[in-house]
Design a protein around this nucleic acid. Structure first.
Lengths: 149, 149
DNA sequence: AAAAACTGGTTGCAAATCAAAACTGGTGTA
DNA sequence: TACACCAGTTTTGATTTGCAACCAGTTTTT
């Protein structure tokens, strides 16, 4: 899984294993302790252990022993981990759109007004919403100039 | 991998296996034949066979025998498959941001002006760009009203 | 027409990974 | 002191992955 000309292989190296994305989702939902992930996801303890170690190793999560109860440990998202939110939402939104009977019980809302966020979409450089049909691939070397430098 | 209250589990059921996302990327890049996927990705033929069958079964790709050369087959993205582009881009973009030395050789550009598309980001219902810190989870039943119905 | 080569697979087998259950060792609680 | 709790590790078996060889239709070459 080495260089194939874009960042996808690396992303998949970190997040592509089974359970990794569900662990991430659980972390976004506020879970922090090993037992919480274990019981929420129903994943085997040894697998969970390995996945968490992998996420920590790749800087997606951070493992810190709990101050007040030294049996416990906290796994928290790093900034790098939090940056996966758009990808996770896009994937989730896709799953919801193409599956019957999945109305999510938790929805992300804007703190300011309590309204759900917009679906993840693609935009041109100037902000216009844009779809697959409006796009084409271009070799990185041959890009049009941004015009105005 | 059943109901956990959102569409992510279903999305992962379809796309969560190893190679699936790389096959998808190859399809977005225009590959259509079995041999093309095989040699581009370096994936074992039996695995590729299984993955493609899975993607077809879940409606992400469509398998049609080639008219002009009846040895060949075409695998093409369906509308459901094309709808995975935002998720794929978000993932790829994350991989690029947090990995050294990955400048992609192919870039998606707007057909109209040849300029690269904007990074995938999150937006409030009214279009404001918004980040993880501006968001919170809300039980789906207790949503604020959109005001104006 | 026959031989060779190409395409999209399948089969068999070894290696790696996943998963369930039991166990461990440090820590807090009754 | 006894007991429960947390975060793992170990052990063992099942599943998945991957390589290599094989195969059956189709072109292509000779």
């Amino acid at each position: 899984m080495r260089e194939l000309g874009c960042g996808l292989p690396h992303a998949l190296e970190v997040m592509g294993e089974r359970w990794s994305f569900l662990i991430l989702r659980a972390a976004f939902n506020g879970l922090v302790h090993f037992e919480e992930f274990s019981s929420e996801l129903g994943i085997a303890r040894n697998i969970l252990s390995g996945r968490l170690a992998n996420l920590v190793e790749h800087g997606v999560m951070e493992r810190t022993p709990c101050e007040d109860d030294r049996r416990k440990v906290e796994y928290r998202l790093t900034e790098k981990g939090a940056a996966l939110l758009p990808a996770m939402l896009a994937l989730r939104q896709w799953g919801e759109r193409y599956t019957d009977n999945v109305s999510p019980e938790l929805v992300l809302v804007d703190k300011q007004d309590g309204l759900p966020i917009a679906p993840i979409t693609m935009h041109a450089h100037d902000g216009r919403e844009i779809g697959w049909d409006d796009l084409m691939w271009q070799r990185a070397g041959e890009l049009a100039d941004q015009r105005g430098g």
